[in-house]
Design a binder for these strands. Sequence first.
DNA 1: CCTACCGATCGGTAGG
DNA 2: CCTACCGATCGGTAGG
Lengths: 197, 197
Amino acid sequence: MNDAAPPRATVSPQAVREVALTLFAERGYHGTALSEIAAELGIRTPSLYNHIRSKQELLHDIVIETTTDVWADYERAVKDEPDVVARLRSATRVYALRHATHRREALIVNREIASLDDPARSRAMQLRRCHAEAMKELIDEGTKAGRFSEPASTLAAFGILEMCVSIARWFRDDGPLSAEEVAAKYAEMCLRVAGAK
Amino acid sequence: MNDAAPPRATVSPQAVREVALTLFAERGYHGTALSEIAAELGIRTPSLYNHIRSKQELLHDIVIETTTDVWADYERAVKDEPDVVARLRSATRVYALRHATHRREALIVNREIASLDDPARSRAMQLRRCHAEAMKELIDEGTKAGRFSEPASTLAAFGILEMCVSIARWFRDDGPLSAEEVAAKYAEMCLRVAGAK
DNA sequence: CCTACCGATCGGTAGG
DNA sequence: CCTACCGATCGGTAGG
């Protein structure tokens, strides 16, 4: 851990969030103390309250922003894409890409939704269900059109989404493959899950 | 939550572990207080120490037993199976099956390894790496033999394993598919990820 | 199995 | 940004 933080740092809300992202992703929400976030920033715990309203607000903003962005990604990805195979490929590619480029956010959303207070938790879970349902319907549509062949579309949709989540667990910026390359690879693997010919 | 626990229960180590499994899986290790486990059992917190040595020991036993069993499952699944496609199918099927039949254990292992103290954490992570590496080598072997076609075997192996983990997130005993049916389904989907012809 | 109690730490506030 | 401090709760122990 970096204990060489400057003795009198000037901190911003973004800086607090940045440290929270790292520590929540590494140790979990309940496993991270505000004193640890403060220490990482080189300030005392009460000073955090000049930048945030509460610990819960940090989690709230991370989860709500991420789940909202995931859904916006999806809608953008399938818009203006007439071919159903291209639509599933595009939807999967942007989801996979996000898990390479926003690893910490993705891990926190996947692990800590239960730690989020209502009503935000319900909203986040609804957005995720919405996303999974949309993926399922893409698979159904493709299967009806003879382009896919997976009648267990709900199982396949969950499997595809979770496969993309795995990226957040191992991806490294300095690895052999770029985020875009990994996303393209996973999109093709996921098409095979749906039974693309 | 069941607050109708008997006023003077007789508790066993197994009963404590059973409640811990449920609460750790629902709220996480750091999100669960021993007082909550005790309340669920209808006893006071200090009485737990007649059955366990510490909270950490509970997590330790769950994670070590599960990761050990996963590896034993794998070895049993590939033993005496000459065909490489059948080996990957069998290895995937038992892993998927475990995630339907041991949902709480699987979720805890996936979420709380970082909450486990060394040296158990290192041992558990090594067992998981071992498993992922073995899956990767199955894919490589099959690709060399012309039975699979996924040169990005490390990516595929992680993806396949994580896909199976997704089962633990949604499977219900009273759902339309049995654990065995779901495991068979996922095994076939995972073979397609590996590029099985 | 219990009551009584421990030191440590938690998130957060008062006041400057 | 700080020091001083709050009540609550944590995991765990003593002793019966």
